[in-house]
Design a binder for these strands. Structure first.
Lengths: 237, 237
DNA sequence: TCCAATCCTATTCATTCGATTAGATATTGA
DNA sequence: TCAATATCTAATCGAATGAATAGGATTGGA
């Protein structure tokens, strides 16, 4: 009688690329939550399921890890905006503008880290902020200002300076998701609920462009394009 | 010949209360800029011009220092709101509402630490955030929701749920000042300039209530009440 | 099969953190 | 005048930090 010893399952080493991505995920979450100084490399490693020295293997330093995570985040944001824009054919400029603003709100809900990291690095004499503004924020700001100038010139939105519109819109669109834990406690509403996101996008667009039937029509188009079933946004007033 | 040795100037010890205030000032600035974990007690002490162990003399711990600084900040905010409200006589409800919203924007410009600290502490499983919401944010939120409900019921503002209005308004009002260093680099505009503050308040009020002559009249009244000379807000479009 | 490169861990380093201690100096009150 | 108290500093503690080192384990190519 022979006892068959089962061959130990060949230990599959996860691909280095997958590990890198897991580290970046954990790093982004913790950097956004606890700020650069407050996030420890040991905690990032623990969340990613690896040991701490591995971070210094895949990335030169904590700084390198931070900028890599931020690079990927802004890349995803630009991809989302471009994909939305390229998916539109035969749509008028005004509708495109509304859809771009809605896309920013959807992304802010899915990735509140974007606004959180900008806010946390926005302090005097901060090299990371200089890099962040020059590399990633500046192109977005220029695009937005150009868009707002056209909208104001055509009378589609109130005559407000583009810079003010930029901060009104980013603040109004992102704050509820950035402060989601607070919002849940204060109101009982979960801002991450798809219906709540849709309701917030409706509110921001209505406030900026005024009530119009086209908004609803565009939003419906948008839902169909995304393939996501959105619940009714009513019922929590 | 006698050499008169001047008596060394009697070293005046600053009052403990003044030292406490200087420490609280430094602590609030650094907590708001670098977050709780990122702000070191040594740096706070250096900015306050004292040695680090003195913080533990005046406050039990870093936690105690943080909550003391936050307490004072919210106390100042409530004082500003109450002083504005009590200073109004014979003014209709709608005008009062607009003035309260403007006062929030003025305070956000003068004390961007308020919004910064809320944002930084707003993360899951954070005891400081629970305390912050329960003690300071909840009363403000309840008051705001009550105000927004009335405004919506009377048709003064678009029919948007109070919670959404709350985050739209706080975000739109405060973000430009919270991100002031970024705004300077992106636009060349200094959000802390009195004219820029006034322009931003105009923009937010106009977006929420629509263009109306009363807004301008109220703002003028407000300027007179404050006794501050506000420059024209035009010229940077 | 064997070697080299890749991916990962255990251990350890110097530095910095918040906090404590002991003691110096100034102020107050009897 | 002189102790008692209040305010502040110098020196130092253990713990935690980012980073480096040495080495184990897996993979892929010759």
């Amino acid at each position: 009688m022979t006892i068959s010893i089962p061959t130990p399952p060949r230990q599959q080493r996860p691909s280095a690329n997958a590990t890198r991505e897991r580290i970046l995920d954990a790093a982004l979450d913790l950097f956004a939550d606890r700020s650069y100084e407050g996030a420890t490399t040991r905690e990032i490693a623990a969340r990613a399921g690896v040991t701490q020295p591995l971070l210094n293997y895949h990335f030169h330093s904590k700084d390198d890890l931070w900028s890599s995570a931020v690079d990927r985040l802004f890349s995803q944001f630009n991809q989302a905006l471009n994909a939305r824009r390229d998916g539109l054919h035969g749509v008028d400029d005004l509708s495109i503008a509304k859809l771009m603003i809605r896309e920013f709100i959807y992304f802010s809900a899915a990735h509140p880290q974007l606004h959180r990291i900008i806010t946390q690095e926005c302090k005097a004499d901060n090299a990371r902020m200089d890099w962040l503004v020059q590399t990633h924020v500046r192109p977005l700001y220029d695009t937005a200002v150009s868009l707002f100038s056209q909208l104001v010139a055509r009378g589609e939105v109130p005559a407000i300076a583009p810079t003010n519109l930029y901060y009104i819109l980013t603040g109004a669109g992102a704050t509820m998701f950035v402060l989601a834990p607070e919002c849940r406690r204060l109101s009982g509403i979960d801002p991450m609920d798809p219906g709540a996101i849709e309701a917030h996008a409706d509110a921001v667009v209505e406030l900026l462009f005024g009530p119009s039937a086209s908004t609803r029509a565009i939003r419906t188009t948008h839902e169909q394009t995304r393939g996501t079933e959105m619940r009714s946004a009513k019922g929590h007033l």
